[in-house]
Design a binder for these strands. Structure first.
Lengths: 341, 341
DNA sequence: GTAGCGGATGTTGACGAGAACATCCGCGAG
DNA sequence: CTCGCGGATGTTCTCGTCAACATCCGCTAC
């Protein structure tokens, strides 16, 4: 794997450029930052010197001087869920538009000590603000304490009293899914929930229950998955024999995909025998068989608001509380239909 | 969205800690870095002062002094492809294990100027090494020039002469897929390729062609998609009427999923009438109907080698060339079967 | 003609941490 | 008893950049 070696070229400091261009470092600095009062001729000379030496400003020195890193940190457990990926991408793109970079800090596990370690590292990161893509339960722990001078935005959580929270409106989305199924004549709706460790999963499950109760319907036992399609398949295999199960609301699309295959394998037709609704509206949702009715999340908007909130804190120097919910949209496809007669 | 405001707590510098603990800043520094020759009693006093004031070391100052940021940059177009996401996650995890953070730099578009801008920003990033995840032949362009003192690892590209390249062994994977289908008795294999702008897509297409030619088979026209399931569906709809098409190798699993649904809609059974092979082995592959035969990529290993190569460069101070290919594995599921009689 | 203004440039210092070097002290060897 | 050594700690200086202030100059207004 190794072949040739090139000796490392030394990082060029401003002073070298200044010397070559015959000006002071301050003038180089001014050119570098587009300051107006530099003679065009001088500017060109400095640019030429920069190019010749391959000068690039040193981010550390700049940050030390200015106190700004122009970066936003994101703390998360995993990039293996659709929601996290899409949120991270959206944050990265919006941040990039503001000329901010994104620093990713993965947390090894959900163990208390790993989370604590990540939070502690937060403050030492070369970052102006932090987005926590962690579920709330973790922050409830009184021992987990976020330094007061760190600007934080929290996603997928409920700590709106102390922190800025941005999130998809899980409750409204879940409500719409249940309503849709009830309006098709189903007596009740089963729920394939995500893991208990997820705040989003818990919110969706709670609202599913509330919607059924407020409609005066029987509330079936919750079936739990772990977000994966495989867990959805297992849940589907367990639900298929139950003839009273004519409608299932899955907490995400991957698990819904597993459900669809499990029902197909068990000979239960979708949507004729069972209706299925997912959550997220991943790209593949439309390509499943049948195409999946699902709750569309606007991750782009979540990302935009995260960046906006983070930069607002950075610019004002203050931390604000409050919850900012992004609406969902029910996308009706072929996986839902009238209740069987 | 805004409610309460807390005044910003000032960042605590080392000097404050030193004063409170009754020592010099140097001693605080030593404690902070675990230097051995500090009296336990002094150490405790310093720790207490740190805790009381909420001291956290300043990353910029540390980086300026040491010349190290302990961060690796990743430049990429998008997180919407499975491959990129999984690679980024793997890199983040391995880097984190070495106590390095990850900085994400999205490139707005594939336009020449945006790529150039990103490359130029590279050198100014607060980063010790950079991974280019651009999946393209970008570096062929002579105008795109990477500063010689930037440590670079390239993924999904072909600049092994000048840079370290880590990649999945696309050719071997594609070859295995074609071989598998031919060994099942299919006269030839159609190919649903990814976009021309993707290096991986081109490698897979080239090897598909080579495998067919070396077996003396007819080489059908290539059908192109854009990685999405929707484009796979469109391609499937176009291929379905062609009775000579009994085997399709899709360049990724999402497009294969679209193919499966298109064939189902067109009344062509998989695998009885048509066999389908994908590439990637995404989680959902096993949940498709039928479960998808596909080429498994070991993204974790790609990430590990990227981090290893990047840190090797950082530590040696040199840049090395060479190509490091990660093997693939063909996962046979129900979507492939013997050629129809 | 000169005061005064403003544009172009230079000089100085500070950001926070930590390496190099200096200092001080106690203890053991000669 | 003194020298020297090494551990604990302090002092100084530097990293690269940029803001603040200083300087110098030409031009305009009176």
């Amino acid at each position: 794997m190794t072949e040739s070696l090139e000796r490392r070229a030394r990082r060029v400091p401003m002073g070298d450029v200044a010397r070559l261009a015959g000006v002071s470092t301050q003038t180089v600095s001014r050119v570098s930052n587009g300051h107006p009062s530099v003679l065009p001729e001088t500017r060109d000379r400095v640019f030429a010197a920069m190019a010749e030496l391959g000068y690039r400003p040193n981010a550390a020195a700049r940050a030390l001087r200015s106190g700004e890193f122009r970066a936003i940190g994101i703390v998360l457990f995993t990039l293996s869920t659709t929601g996290n990926v899409r949120t991270v991408e959206a944050i990265a793109n919006w941040a990039s538009a503001e000329d901010y970079a994104i620093t990713l800090v993965p947390v090894r596990s959900r163990s208390r000590e790993d989370v604590l370690a990540a939070i502690r590292r937060l403050g030492e990161l070369a970052v102006d603000a932090v987005v926590l893509l962690l579920s709330a339960h973790l922050l409830d722990d009184a021992a987990i304490h976020i330094p007061p001078d760190v600007h934080v935005v929290i996603v997928d959580s409920d700590a709106g009293d102390d922190f800025t929270v941005v999130d998809t409106d899980q409750a409204a989305g879940a409500h719409a899914a249940v309503e849709h199924l009830l309006s098709l004549g189903h007596a009740t709706v089963h729920h394939l929930a995500g893991p208990e460790s997820s705040y989003a999963a818990e919110r969706r499950a709670a609202e599913w229950r509330a919607a059924l109760e407020s409609a005066g319907r029987r509330v079936p036992d919750v079936v739990r998955g772990d977000w994966t399609a495989a867990s959805g398949y297992a849940a589907g295999a367990a639900l298929a024999p139950d003839a009273t199960c004519t409608a299932v609301f899955a907490a995400n699309d991957e698990m819904a995909a597993g459900l669809l295959r499990a029902f197909a394998d068990a000979g239960r037709r979708v949507p004729e025998d069972v209706s299925v609704v997912g959550f997220d509206d991943i790209d593949l949702a439309e390509q499943l068989q049948p195409p999946l009715t699902t709750v569309h999340q606007d991750f782009g908007e979540v990302g935009r608001r995260c960046v906006a909130a983070a930069l607002a804190q950075v610019r004002s120097g203050a931390r604000s509380g409050g919850v900012d919910l992004v609406p969902t949209r029910l996308v009706i496809r072929a996986s839902t239909g009238p209740a069987p007669a």
